[in-house]
Computed example of a mutant assay.
Amino acid sequence: MKIPKPRKRGDSYRIELMFEGKRISATRDTEKECEQWAALKLLELKTGKALDEKGIKPQLPFKQLCEKYYIERGSKLKSAYVIRSKLDNIDKILGELATKSIYDFTPNDIVRWRNKRVLEVQSSTALREFAMFSAIFSYAEKELFLLDSNVWTKVVKPLKGKPRSQRITAEDQEKIFKRSKWDNQTAPYYSQHYVGWSLLFALETAMRQGEILSMRREHLRDGYIHLPMTKNGESRDVPLSAEAKRLISLLPDENDFLVPVKVKTFKRTWIRMRDEAGLNHINFHDTRHEAITRMVKNRKLPVEVLAKITGHRTIGILINTYYNPDAQDLVEMFNSSES
């Protein structure tokens, strides 16, 4: 059956299918999403009906379930970009499990995948992938009612691994910033200028990449910036240092989004600049570690105040994961406390 062409309705698209005299429709944000939904729905209807009559479970490849999950749920989450990136590489990540029917998954399949995956990537990456795939199976169980249980919950997750403690030295900062080709005195113009600007701003504020890219001019206040929605689902007010205020003053007044760069472009530009500097072991998120450590060292902020600025609900995570003093920092703070 040929998939019908979606019709534009306002800011969205609508597509309609006819199956055995019944009309089925869906509304999505783009034509492509409509067509993906229609292809999956037709396959479900055709295979499901034929096999249901025989009491046989239809073959449903895991990657197909993943696409349905993304269309129905994942695309609406804050982590949509991350989920999409994983699904675009699902054959590489999952190997033969990508095309295996969800009804044929066994705990041993997942154990073998887990043990292989932790040798290929960091344990934290394997853990995030494990959690995402488990969530997709839970979706199939509790929302689609395709499964009686989630087989991923019967397997021990990958170990969390040691928290990342990468610092960004002044030399590292300068090497990466130099690749932005921005003078730090005039308004940024190109994407690489804005990435350089964001590097400096993140080191002043400890803000996440996503928070920086979502900043709008209406969020600016006198002495701070208001973040209406953050990663933990709550709003946060971030005080601005004199340097952070100076950086903001350089941005064009017409910018609604203070950093008008798309997520994919930002990430691609950051990786290129970082790699050109010979620092491919550094992630943009490491600016958060560095900024928090500098705040403690230079501003002597008490931990409860620091947690309000950074948005950490759990003090232990803030101290043990994001505060990363080196030995010399500890020596200086220890000696200064005696004076």
Rank of each mutant, 00 (worst) to 15 (best):
T30S: 15
S214F: 02
K178H: 10
W182F: 04
M1V: 12
K22E: 15
E243I: 09
A135Q: 07
I24K: 14
M333I: 14
R208Q: 14
T186C: 04
A38I: 09
Y13F: 15
I56E: 13
R28S: 11
Y194C: 04
T230E: 08
R114M: 01
L220G: 06
R23T: 15
E129Q: 04
L42H: 06
N324I: 15
I83T: 03
I56P: 08
T321D: 15
G196S: 06
S198N: 06
K181I: 05
T205Q: 10
I225Q: 02
P6H: 12
G55H: 11
K8G: 14
M215Y: 03
S337R: 12
K5M: 08
P107W: 01
A206M: 05
A135I: 04
E254M: 10
G196E: 01
I71G: 07
P4T: 12
E31P: 05
T269W: 02
V259S: 12
K68V: 09
G278T: 10
E204C: 03
R236L: 13
R7K: 14
K264E: 11
G21V: 11
V155T: 00
E211G: 04
E72F: 09
I248P: 02
L247S: 03
T321S: 15
D256H: 08
L87F: 15
T30W: 11
T30Y: 10
L40C: 10
A126Y: 00
V121P: 01
E44N: 08
Y103F: 15
P61F: 03
I271H: 09
F334N: 12
R164M: 05
K100W: 00
A291T: 05
T287Y: 01
K78F: 08
V118I: 14
E16M: 09
Y190K: 13
N324P: 14
E141D: 07
S123I: 05
R128S: 04
D172E: 09
R268W: 04
V111G: 02
L146P: 07
E204S: 06
I3P: 13
E338F: 12
M295D: 05
Q59F: 09
Q59H: 10
S165V: 07
I248D: 02
W270Q: 02
T27F: 05
K32C: 09
M333T: 12
E44P: 04
F257Q: 10
W197G: 01
R246V: 01
V151H: 00
R313F: 08
I248H: 03
I319Y: 01
H285A: 07
L144E: 13
Q64T: 14
Q122H: 06
A135W: 02
K41H: 09
T265H: 11
Y224R: 14
Y322V: 11
L258R: 00
D11M: 11
M215G: 02
E72K: 08
G233S: 08
K162R: 07
K92Q: 06
T186S: 15
S241L: 07
D52Q: 13
R294F: 10
V296P: 07
G316C: 06
R272S: 14
D183V: 15
I71M: 10
R14I: 15
G311C: 06
F257I: 08
S75R: 14
T125G: 03
V305F: 11
G196I: 02
A131E: 05
D329N: 15
E20Q: 13
T186Y: 01
K63D: 09
